[in-house]
Design a protein around this nucleic acid. Sequence first.
DNA 1: ACATTGACCTGGGAGC
DNA 2: TGCTCCCAGGTCAATG
Length: 271
Amino acid sequence: MPELPEVETTLRGIEPYVDQQTIARIVVRNPQLRWPVPVQDLRSLHNKKVLKVARRAKYLLFHTDVGVMLLHLGMSGSLRVLLTPQSPGKHDHIDIELQSGVVIRFNDPRRFGCCLFSDDDIDAHALLIKLGPEPLSEAFNGDFLYEKSRGKSQAVKNFIMDGHVVVGVGNIYASESLFESGIRPSSQAGKISRPRYRILANNIKQVLAKAIRAGGTTLNDFTQADGKPGYFRQELQVYARQGEPCTRCQSPIKSKVIGQRNTFYCSRCQK
DNA sequence: ACATTGACCTGGGAGC
DNA sequence: TGCTCCCAGGTCAATG
């Protein structure tokens, strides 16, 4: 579920309650996420101050002076800020209890998310070291995409969804960015021109930035940290709109499976 | 090196 | 009502 805008929205929602706050304890009710939760390691965070909470790709990073807790929301995860005690529900796997009394609660029905700990250089972590640039950074631009794509035969949609190319672009925003750019998702990445990649890079930035401003996209169960949905769904131009008229040319939006993921596009506007 | 496929897991909706 | 099947925001590991 969560792509970059949803994770960024989550970060902004929890930051005021977490930054510079001391962790009282971390309660793990179900350690069986994508990888086993290192319960013992997390104990070392008890009574430690969160020096900074940040985002890298779709990972949330809780920095302390003894190590970093990494949290990934997977497909169905979310964090909630609880200002008053609430009894945990079925998929409330982890609570980060702060000394202030606030609880950050991790819920993840499908358990594709993960919670890990690192006391090494976090930038060198195996899950982070090979990742591509942040899409909203200056390092990510059309020239970068152009150079990186030479010789690649895969569909451009798969190319921009590859975290080793650029992070944060998931299934929703890949379709949306390609629509805004007039590029057919199935086009071979290696055959797209430099000018078109410049357009695409700019549109990825704009779509993501706009989605962050809207608090992300709620399709089913994504919620911001305060429990509210994201409001970008009403801004979607093609995602999940198959059969509906294109907002630009009125021809019906098509859907097609590319790389095992459903993909949405306008066959008239996107060549 | 590159590209595709399978795997992980639960819940909700469609169809019978 | 209840069963079966299909689908869903991610991404790593295994396979050609």
